[in-house]
Amino acid sequence: MYKFYHLRLAAALVMGLNAQTALAGEMWITNEKDHTVSVIDTKTLKVKATYNVGLRPRGITFAKDFSELYICASDDDAIDVLDPNTGLVIRRLESGEDPEQFALHPDNKHLYISNEEDALATVLNVETGEAVAEIDVGIEPEGMAVSPDGKIAIVTSETTNMVHWIDTESAEIFNNTLVAQRPRHGEFSKSGDRLWVSSEIGGTIAIIDTATQEIIQTLNMHIPGISDDLIQPVGIRLTDDGTKAFVALGPANHVAVIDAKTFEAIGFVLVGRRVWHLEFAEDEKQVFATNGISGDVTVIDVETLKPIKTIKVGRFPWGAAFRPG
């Protein structure tokens, strides 16, 4: 413990001396009920800045070169584009109604956006601000992901209980996979051959084969002392090496750590209340978890699977995006 503090002190000292150079990474958090983003220094684990953005910020992602930050301003029906060096909104893109989540295509040019209240997915060119396609999907679309090769986009619709598979070339749905109740989030494996989908009310994770769009595994999780119907998975992150999956379990207030090969639970990490989304920092040495109800972010050490710090941010922290130093 002592050592830990010394290290932090030293880090703070270094930071103070090199105020101009951004050595440390940054975790950017959207605060849904504050219309702000909080920026956490991933070395000191302190909030170093808070910036105003559009109304009800939820989905958040960086451009592939980290030069720009995109944020769904849901109640402004817009995507705010921030300069991460200044925290200023430098332009605003019309996204269609109520953008909730999005995914950036590997071409670094097209955002695939779920329009929650309109049962639509919008494809937006971030350079021109032009909506290049609108795709009818199920009711309350939310989770959005693009396969690593860029050929497939998926969207989960919460009330229709489906994963819609979109051919990014034609911008048309080519298949639908029925999953358990209220699918919230989809995440492709690094290789792209698997898609993990969380069903919040179903309480399960479906692991889907990308080639056939068929479910190959359904995971149920049990934590002693917690009612099964409160295990409500939402955010998912998979390690690049394909060994582990982290799953945020909502009102169960835990993050599940799953062996991505055997699908066995490695452990459950206690975090804050209603844990929502997750993001890796520092070469996947840490996972940040947003706790919507308690208004904070828990940092989990990936090696020890222990929560190392909880950091107060704004009201209803929703999404997280990492920018390396």
């Binding site: 639908n176 996979t177 029925l178 999953v179 358990a180 399960t204 479906a206 068929e214 479910i215 190959i216 595994q217 359904t218 995971l219 149920n220 999780m221 049990h222 934590i223 002693p224 599940a256 799953i258 699908f263 066995e264 639970a265």
Partner: peptide, 22 residues
């Protein structure tokens, strides 16, 4: 059956047939 056989502290791989698209 699946629930019964599962370890309390584990993750169960349920048969996926129930959720396949008709």
């Amino acid at each position: 059956l699946v629930k019964l056989s599962a370890a309390i502290f584990g993750v169960v791989c349920a048969v996926s047939a129930a959720f396949n698209t008709p």
